[in-house]
């Protein structure tokens, strides 16, 4: 894309005098900006960071930065799966409770069935994958809209978590309360590392692999994608499985971080809504066909900064929701407007 703009700029430059060269450069910059929707979210994240840093000395301290990335990582990780699903034209409302379920499964496996630590963790993750498979199967094969399918699994899994745990928190099993726990979330750096690794992996998956391209195709033109021979059902089911597995993983690292297994992790729907909000603020359209992983991760960062910063400068947590609501509405309006700009052909020619 860059070389195209450069070419366009140089063509204009050879044909026209100096004055319009600056204008061409400006137009090129605007086109780049519109094309990389993540850029606007990055700017918001930076401006927010600068504002809170100037308003509170505590904001840029090491301890607070740890707080911010620990709040960012789980929603960014879940947002990766949500973005893939939204791009392929589906949604998953159950990821948040899968996150609550997976540490319990690890706990049950270790403490009730004497399964060793690592296999128990793998089991908890695979249970997430299986829930994704079921979500995908019901949606794709039985043709229930994913909103309804995952609303059903959301309540069902909530029921499973609350019944089996009797709605009481559990302790982290001893066999994982060691280096494993540190690596998987108890360590200060663990959230940052996992968040970055997973975001980079799924950014590459969405933008540089056949899977990502077909995900966009399936969401952008479902009929056309299947006419091209893409197995659309497989792509969708796969993305449900990825989203649910990431949900399970986010639940595990959160359990290790707070050092307890909480049946109301993230307030039940909290993690899911934060992740969807992050994806939407990051420029992902609910209609399918477009969205970015980096945007979703930056969206998660913006939300974490807001919550943290407002806390630091002494605003009560309640206006946070006002700002969150306004941010979602504004970014969606901007999204629709930018899409129309592009469709109108005023960008990128």
């Amino acid at each position: 894309m860059r070389d195209m703009t450069e070419r366009a700029v140089s063509q204009t430059a050879t044909r026209e005098p100096q004055g319009s060269r600056a204008r061409a450069l400006l137009k090129g910059a605007r086109d780049q900006f519109l094309r990389h929707r993540e850029a606007s979210v990055l700017i918001v994240a930076l401006v927010l960071g600068a504002y809170f840093a100037s308003a509170s000395d505590a904001f840029l301290t090491h301890a607070n930065l740890v707080n911010i990335w620990q709040a960012t990582a789980p929603s960014a990780i879940v947002a990766c799966g949500i973005v893939l699903l939204l791009v392929s034209g589906e949604i998953d409302l159950s990821v948040g409770v899968v996150a609550a379920l997976s540490p319990f499964l690890m706990h049950y496996a270790i403490d009730f069935y004497s399964i060793p630590a690592i296999p128990a963790i793998v089991l908890a993750l695979l249970a997430g994958t299986l829930i994704g498979l079921i979500n995908g199967f019901v949606t794709v094969v039985l043709k229930v809209p994913s909103f309804v399918t995952t609303l059903g699994t959301f309540y069902f899994i909530t029921g499973v978590v609350l019944t089996t745990s009797h709605a009481y928190p559990a302790e982290i099993p001893a066999s994982v309360d060691n280096a494993i726990g540190t690596w998987l979330g108890a360590g200060d750096w663990a959230h940052l590392a996992w968040g970055l690794i997973i975001v980079v992996i799924f950014h590459v998956v969405l933008t540089r692999t056949r899977w990502g391209l077909h995900t966009i195709a399936v969401g952008g033109n479902p009929l056309g994608a299947s006419e091209s021979g893409i197995r659309t059902g497989r792509i969708k089911i796969g993305n449900f499985m990825i989203a649910s597995t990431l949900g399970a993983f986010a639940g595990l690292i959160e359990a290790f971080r707070i050092h307890t297994i909480d049946p109301n992790l993230g307030g039940g729907t909290g993690l899911m809504f934060t992740a969807v909000a992050a994806a939407v603020i990051g420029g992902t359209a609910l209609a399918g066909g477009s969205g970015t992983i980096i945007g979703g991760a930056l969206g998660a960062l913006v939300l974490a900064e807001l919550q943290n910063g407002m806390n630091l400068i002494g605003i009560s947590a309640n206006p946070y929701f006002l700002i969150l609501g306004a941010a979602i509405l504004l970014s969606m309006i901007a999204n629709v407007y930018l899409t129309r700009l592009r469709r109108g052909g005023r960008v990128g020619r």
Partner: peptide, 21 residues
């Protein structure tokens, strides 16, 4: 096909090679 099986959101070259990348 009449609907061309093109994906609006993708570039021309990605559409040219859709499913045969």
């Amino acid at each position: 096909y009449q609907d061309l099986a093109l994906v609006n959101e993708l570039s021309v070259y990605h559409n040219m090679f859709l499913n045969r990348e």
